[in-house]
């Protein structure tokens, strides 16, 4: 049951975008953790860069969308920048979308 509702929350959060990258926060790997206990969702979230002006909007959007999932009575979002986000956090689909890993980069030499 708990796994199912965590999955539902993650699926719902795919409707929340990072506006600059134009891709959903889950596949970008910005959602570090989702935990649900007695209908209370606790989400650990980051942004692509510390100081991003969209941070409050993304946090509020994630909180509101998570709280609207059936079975969720409350949602809390905690922001963290440890560890810092990197493109390696993206899902394979997101990496393909941005072309991450499709060319040899200087860091990979």
């Amino acid at each position: 049951m708990s796994d199912d509702i965590v999955r539902s929350v993650k699926e719902a959060l795919k409707e929340v975008l990072d506006p600059e990258l134009g891709y959903n926060v889950v596949d970008l790997g910005l959602v570090y953790d989702v935990d649900v206990e007695d209908g209370h969702a606790r989400i650990l979230l980051t942004t692509t860069t510390k100081g991003c002006p969209a941070t409050a909007f993304i946090r509020d959007g994630v909180e509101t969308r998570a709280a609207s999932v059936p079975g969720i009575t409350a949602a809390d979002v905690t922001m963290t920048w440890e560890p810092p986000w990197s493109p390696d956090c993206m899902s394979d689909e997101a990496k393909a979308h941005f072309g991450v890993g499709t060319r040899r980069t200087a860091g990979e030499r």
Binding site: V16, L17, P19, G22, F57, D60, G61, V62, E63, R65
Partner: peptide, 19 residues
Amino acid sequence: WLERYGSLLGKQAVPRVQD
């Protein structure tokens, strides 16, 4: 985007900056 659509995030479909 921040001014117009930021507060709608998570509540309804919003455009991307690219849109």
